[in-house]
Simulated assay, not measured.
Amino acid sequence: MTGWGAHLADQTASGLWDLSLAPQHINMLELEAVSLGLRAFLPLLGGSHVQVHTDNTTVAAYINRQGGTRSQKLSESACRLLVWCSSHNILLSAKYLKGTLNVLADALSRGDKVLHSEWTLSHQALDRLWVQVDKPCIDLFATRFSTRLPLFVSPFPDPLAWAVNALDLDWTNLQAYAFPPFCLLGKVVRKVDLEKPALVLVAPLWPSQHWYPDLLRLAVRPPIPLGVRRGDLLQPRSGVPHENPQALQLHGWILSESLCVVPGPRPQL
């Protein structure tokens, strides 16, 4: 409810809401964000078919159906937007994009708010890991701002990304690094078990979690403590550090025998 954000290729636009818009329903604000984004990028869009990706299903439907029957106000606003697009020779359509994949626009709209899916480790913290294992070249869960390796897989479409949505990729025989949001760790561990990539995973030492026994079973050596201190875990765009990174007990987990590692015993359940 603070502001709006949009991106097109490597261009971004954002702003705070006018106070007169603050009481509006969230659907109206989402549609207004689409309108402001299109206007911001107008010099790049004239004469084009533009597909807007939005994490609001209602707004996507009202754009694609050229209005709707549930909200007269929203329908009128959608029609005004489509008329504006037509006047600039823009053919507009919309596609729903899950909020978890809408990371950059979300960050732009929230200003200095902390995004829990956007923590990244400093290069200094990762150097403690790379001295013990070969550094891969692909960062599976990153944006152009948070990546720590030459290639990265973005959660949203990005022309700079090697691929989009890591969980949709086939990880078989892939050599990569992953520091996923903690809420995805269960899916990541299951995918490693099924597809057997050569993966360096950063995850907490949390024995009470349901995925922890499987993670221990997949590890080829004891987890490597990263000794993360304040300033080592931060938000990539704002540089805001995590308040208590030591409490997360972040470790590096080596999940393949094919990775070159310092010899050590296998972890025990």
Rank of each mutant, 00 (worst) to 15 (best):
G231I: 06
H242C: 13
L174A: 06
L255E: 11
G5A: 04
V59T: 14
L29S: 05
Q72C: 00
V189R: 10
M1C: 12
L42Y: 11
R229S: 09
A166V: 03
S122K: 05
G227E: 10
L160R: 14
L140E: 00
V228P: 02
A247P: 03
I254T: 05
N173F: 11
A142K: 08
E30V: 05
G252C: 13
V228Q: 05
T143H: 05
I224K: 10
S71W: 15
P245H: 08
P263V: 09
V131K: 14
W84P: 11
Q51A: 15
S71E: 07
W211S: 14
A60K: 10
L248Q: 07
H53Q: 14
W84A: 14
V261K: 05
L92C: 08
L29N: 02
W4N: 01
A94I: 12
N244L: 03
Q246F: 02
S93T: 14
L174I: 01
R217Y: 02
T2R: 13
P150L: 13
A105Q: 10
L226A: 07
Q51S: 14
L19Y: 06
L97E: 08
P241Y: 02
F182T: 00
L184K: 09
N244E: 09
M28A: 15
R144F: 08
L184I: 02
L101R: 12
A107F: 11
S208W: 02
P155K: 12
L92N: 10
D127E: 12
S238A: 08
L129D: 13
